[in-house]
């Protein structure tokens, strides 16, 4: 059996970079096609039996358990997990065990936590995934948060999103600060930059997160109860790669995003609630695009709205919309 390790060091960055919106899924090439990276059954996981000042191993276990419960509670999704027990093995050990734990990574001064995978390259199925929380930072599991400390449950929720196969969302706004970029606001737990110490708002999933996990782990009613929005982003008659397309629900204002992922500028946003939407297209122009794409993308265009509203019917897809953007 051929296997390979994919290490994602892009996890919840601290003062890193990136604005914008939308969820991405991890994918691997299998037999000439890109398939989703995901689990085929319940996620069995262990907790490393190592505490740090202010957070015990038991408290880490509880925080991870609550974070898993949040993902499992998403309607029309089928995420499942099974706590297997405590282990002395640190995360990152290739031992056929998915492990969460604290790890000393002082050299990663802007990485709060990270997730690594061991995949079956024939199927894209996840065999093992480890999540470490960097002891370089001060952590908290206080119910109301603690000033000066990063909320462990919030970061665990983000990391489990990666562990399940979700990439970063770009729904958010940032500003430059002496330490890099500081997040002003975000519309997804999967946004790549963490909220400030003491903030616990990211213990709750947002619509963009829920759409992503529904798309990746659809429930029985998924095909009947959800919809999808698709289309193309073009500039001068040619497709735009890496454009960020955001669907805004006209009834409740929820925002769910996606990216154009090929040379034709095609995007698909799955797992959205049926309804009426606006489509807003924006460039990833003030961020490190490495958080989203491994190659160059087009960021030279203006924010543009689709010329018509988009109807997302239950149990089907909306008529594709083409958004024509212009260079800045």
């Amino acid at each position: 059996m051929t296997r390979r390790v994919i290490l994602l060091a892009c996890l919840l960055a601290w003062g890193a970079q990136t604005p914008l919106s939308a969820y991405l899924k991890f994918g691997v090439r299998v037999g000439g096609q890109t398939v989703d990276v995901k689990w085929s059954g319940p996620v069995p996981y262990f907790i490393t039996e190592r505490g740090i000042p202010n957070v015990s191993a038991t408290q880490l276990r509880d925080a991870v358990g609550r974070a898993f419960a949040s993902w499992q509670a998403v309607p029309d999704a089928t995420v499942r997990s099974q706590f297997q027990g405590m282990t002395i093995a640190p995360p990152g050990t290739q031992d056929q065990r998915t492990t969460f734990g604290f790890l000393d990574r002082p050299e990663l001064d802007r990485v709060l936590a990270a997730t690594s995978f061991l995949l079956d390259s024939r199927t894209g199925e996840i065999r093992e995934a480890d999540v470490f929380f960097n002891t370089r930072f001060d952590w908290s599991v206080a119910a109301a948060g603690e000033a000066g400390r990063i909320d462990l449950e919030s970061v665990a929720l983000h990391e489990i999103g990666h562990l399940l196969g979700l990439g970063h969302s770009a729904i958010g706004e940032t500003e430059l600060s002496p330490n890099g970029r500081r997040v002003i606001a975000s519309g997804a737990v999967m946004f790549p930059i963490s909220f400030s110490p003491g903030v616990i708002a990211d213990r709750l999933l947002q619509p963009d997160d829920r759409a992503g996990i529904r798309d990746l782990y659809p429930g029985r009613q998924f095909d009947q109860t959800t919809s999808s929005i698709s289309g193309f982003v073009t500039k001068g008659g040619r497709g735009v790669l890496g454009a960020h397309a955001v669907a805004i629900n006209l009834r409740d204002g929820t925002t769910i995003g996606g990216f154009t992922l090929n040379a034709e500028g095609e995007f698909v946003i799955g797992g959205v609630s049926p309804g009426t939407y606006l489509v807003r297209v924006e460039p990833l122009d003030d961020a490190d695009t490495d958080s989203f794409f491994s190659g160059p993308i087009d960021v030279d265009f203006q924010v543009t709205y689709g010329a018509r509203i988009v109807i997302a019917p239950a149990g089907g897809g909306a008529d594709p919309i083409t958004v024509q953007v212009r260079a800045k």
């Binding site: 909220f195 003491g198 708002a201 805004i248 409740d252 204002g253």
Partner: peptide, 19 residues
């Protein structure tokens, strides 16, 4: 409708207006 984002801040800060 106002599309809002969750603002970074302790407590319950006013949401950020996207549009």
């Amino acid at each position: 409708v106002t599309a809002e984002l969750r603002r970074n801040g302790i407590g319950a800060p006013a949401p950020f207006t996207l549009l």
